[in-house]
C-alpha cells in the first residue's frame, strides 16, 4: 500500500461476559474474534455483514468504545501513535478528538432540546478545543458550510429538519473536532434512496477534501460497492474476506461473499429465480459452531470445515480469504 496505515487491529477480540459459570472458565460471547485489519490513511474502508456479524462492535472497539479483550488496535496519524488497549486517561481524551462516530439514526442522535448550533458546538466545548465563543462560532459555521448547512439552519432545532438534513447535522458534529478517523455506522440506512445518494456524495466529498479515513459499516453491499475502495466481509465475529472493492465484487472467493452478492435483489425482472439462496440463519454467537463458522450454511462444506477453523490467507493482491476450499472452488468456476 502506498499510503501509510492509519489504524490497524491485531488479533482483536471483544468478549462480553455471560451469566453463570461459577465453576470452570467464565462463559462469554465472542462478538469479535481474532480480527486483523489494516486501514490505510485516506481510504474509505467498507465493513459489511448481516446483523449479528459483529461489524458494529468492531467499529466501536476501534474507537475504544467497546472493551478490547485480546489483541490490540494501533492508531498512528503521524502526530501521535496510540495503542488503544493501554490508553491513559489523557491520551484517551486526545484520541476522542481524533476518532469520531456518525450514528445510524439521525432522529435519535440529535437532542431535540438543543439548537443545531449547540449540537455541533458541543464536542468543541466538552473537549475544550476553542478558547472563546467567537472562535467556537467561527468553527461551527465553517464545518456547517462544508456539510451544506447555512447560518439560518444553525438557529433552529432538529425537529424542523428532514432525515437527510439531520444526517448532515450529525456529520457536522462528528467533524467539528477535526478528526482523522471516522466510523460511519449504517449512516445512510435510515434514509430514503433519493436522499441516501446525496449523503453518500457528501461523505465522499468531505473525505477527499479533508483527507479523512472512513470505516464505513453497512449491510447494503450496493452502497459499499459505490463508495468504498476496500471492503472486509464479516461473519459471526470473524473477517472472512477482505479485498479492494473491485476485486471483491468481481472475484468473490468466500462462499459467504458470493451468497451475499447473489442475494441482492436485481433490478432486472428477468433475473427472477437466479438467486443463489442461502439456507438458514446466522448462528448465535453464544453457541458458535465448531470449525468454520459458516459451515452450517455453506453449500460447499466438507469434513475439514466442521473441525478446523480456516484462517485468513492471501488470495491475490491485498485480497485475503478465510476458507479451506477457496482455491478448489475458484478452479471449478474458471
Amino acid at each position: 500500500m502506498s499510503q501509510p496505515t492509519l489504524i490497524s487491529a491485531q488479533g482483536l477480540s471483544v468478549h462480553y461476559a455471560l451469566r453463570g459459570g461459577l465453576i470452570g472458565p467464565k462463559p462469554y460471547v465472542g462478538a469479535v474474534e481474532n480480527v486483523d485489519i489494516e486501514i490505510a490513511s485516506g481510504s474509505f474502508f467498507g465493513l459489511v455483514g448481516e446483523s449479528g456479524s459483529g461489524k458494529t462492535t468492531l467499529g466501536r472497539a476501534m474507537l475504544r468504545a467497546a472493551p478490547i479483550s485480546r489483541g490490540d488496535v494501533h492508531f498512528d496519524d503521524g502526530e501521535v501513535s496510540y495503542s488503544l488497549k493501554n490508553l491513559g486517561k489523557q491520551d484517551l481524551k486526545d484520541y476522542r478528538k481524533r476518532a469520531q462516530l456518525i450514528f445510524q439514526d439521525p432522529y435519535a442522535a440529535l437532542s431535540p432540546r438543543m439548537t443545531v448550533r449547540d449540537i455541533i458546538a458541543e464536542p468543541l466545548e466538552v473537549m475544550g478545543l476553542t478558547s472563546s465563543r467567537a472562535e467556537t462560532d467561527e468553527r461551527v459555521r465553517e464545518i456547517a458550510a462544508k456539510c451544506r448547512l447555512n447560518v439560518e439552519h444553525l438557529r433552529r432545532f432538529p425537529h424542523a429538519f428532514s432525515g437527510g438534513q439531520r444526517q448532515r447535522i450529525s456529520i457536522a458534529r462528528a467533524l467539528v473536532s477535526g478528526p482523522k478517523f471516522i466510523v460511519a455506522d449504517e449512516s445512510v440506512a435510515a434514509l430514503d434512496v433519493s436522499i441516501q445518494a446525496d449523503v453518500l456524495n457528501l461523505l465522499k466529498a468531505i473525505q477527499e477534501d479533508m483527507g479523512l479515513t472512513f470505516l464505513f459499516i453497512s449491510h447494503d453491499l450496493s452502497v459499499v460497492a459505490h463508495v468504498c475502495d476496500h471492503v472486509a466481509v464479516m461473519y459471526l465475529g470473524r473477517i472472512v474476506e477482505t479485498a479492494p472493492t473491485r476485486t471483491l465484487f468481481s472475484n468473490p472467493r468466500h462462499p459467504y461473499t458470493s451468497a451475499l452478492l447473489s442475494a441482492i435483489p436485481s433490478l432486472d425482472p428477468d433475473d427472477r429465480g437466479k438467486v443463489q439462496k442461502l439456507e438458514g440463519e446466522i448462528p448465535s454467537p453464544t453457541n458458535p459452531p465448531p470449525g468454520c463458522k459458516f459451515q452450517t450454511r455453506c453449500p460447499h462444506a466438507i469434513d475439514v470445515c466442521r473441525i478446523q477453523e480456516p484462517s485468513l490467507e492471501p488470495a491475490g493482491t491485498e485480497h485475503h480469504v478465510a476458507c479451506h476450499r477457496w482455491q478448489e472452488l475458484r478452479d471449478q468456476t474458471n
Binding site: S162, A197, S222
Partner: peptide, 24 residues
C-alpha cells in the same frame, strides 16, 4: 427515473450516484 438513478447497483460500481435534489 430519479429513483432509479439514485439507486446504487452492482452492474456499474463506478457510476456516480445521482440524488434527487431537495427534500420531500
Amino acid at each position: 427515473r430519479g429513483l432509479l438513478a439514485a439507486l446504487p447497483t452492482l452492474d456499474d460500481i463506478d457510476a456516480p450516484l445521482t440524488p434527487i435534489p431537495g427534500d420531500i
